[in-house]
């Protein structure tokens, strides 16, 4: 469902050119659960951002469902992210001013869906992560694990084909981390969601179907 062909990413400052990624060729198939591993600063997150259409490659081509997105403008990219991709971040990135239910509804605000339907879908997503009782809480009233579950509910509320998780357990203790992993596994198994997860944890990587290793901006096979 996602193809990266000859992807390179360089950051240009006044004098120095930093190569973050080079020569990346990667196919993500529908229904896969993939982990990305590598040392800090090797380009894992950059790779995930390019997969999530949050960042543009300096070179190469990204194809979503066989279609190149090179010529897409801001509005088309936004709409593609909205309909196909869900994000889970290491630091949750919940909007502190909004209640749990409103945070979960956020992706649906950018779709033509009635308020009532948005509420129904958000409640269902929270039920899926076991937080139905917390809809009216604010993020600050929840534990880290609970906040990450809210973030997962937000990522899955729009039923995306691809879920991208950037060290989703990185800020959690092993017990909470395990809970999050179990939710991801069940999403993969029961809902056939395609998941790409960046992690530092070998044990978690072992629980995925395929592990991609990145070193110095390149894939190691």
């Amino acid at each position: 469902m996602l193809n990266l062909n000859n992807i390179a990413k360089t950051y240009q400052t006044e004098k120095i050119e930093t190569i973050a990624l080079k020569n990346i060729n990667l196919n993500i198939n529908r229904g896969e659960f993939i982990s990305i591993m590598g040392p800090s600063g090797c380009g894992k997150s950059t790779l995930l951002n390019i997969m999530g259409l949050l960042d543009e490659p300096s070179d190469g081509e990204v194809k979503v469902n066989g279609k190149s997105i090179t010529s897409y403008h801001d509005k088309e990219m936004a709409s593609l992210r909205n309909s196909k991709i869900g994000f889970i971040f290491q630091s949750f990135h919940l909007i502190q001013d909004l209640r749990v239910i409103d945070n979960v509804e956020l992706p649906l605000l950018y779709r033509k869906i009635s308020a009532k339907e948005r509420r129904r879908l958000a409640t269902a997503a929270l039920e899926r992560v076991g937080l139905k009782a917390r809809t009216s809480h604010f993020p600050s009233q929840l534990s880290g694990g609970q906040q990450q579950r809210v973030a997962i509910a937000r990522a899955i509320v729009g039923k995306p084909e691809l879920l991208l998780a950037d060290e989703p357990t990185g800020n959690l203790d092993s017990h909470m981390g395990n809970e999050i992993m179990q939710i991801l596994e069940s999403l993969h198994k029961d809902d056939k969601t395609t998941i790409v997860m960046v992690t530092h944890d070998d044990e978690l990587a072992k629980r995925t179907e395929r592990t991609i290793r990145v070193y110095d901006g390149q894939l190691i096979h």
Partner: peptide, 16 residues
């Protein structure tokens, strides 16, 4: 900025 990032990630366009 985190809110802007999240909104963009989940599909808000610049105009929105």
């Amino acid at each position: 900025s985190s809110e802007i990032g999240v909104r963009k990630a989940f599909g808000a366009s610049t105009t929105q």
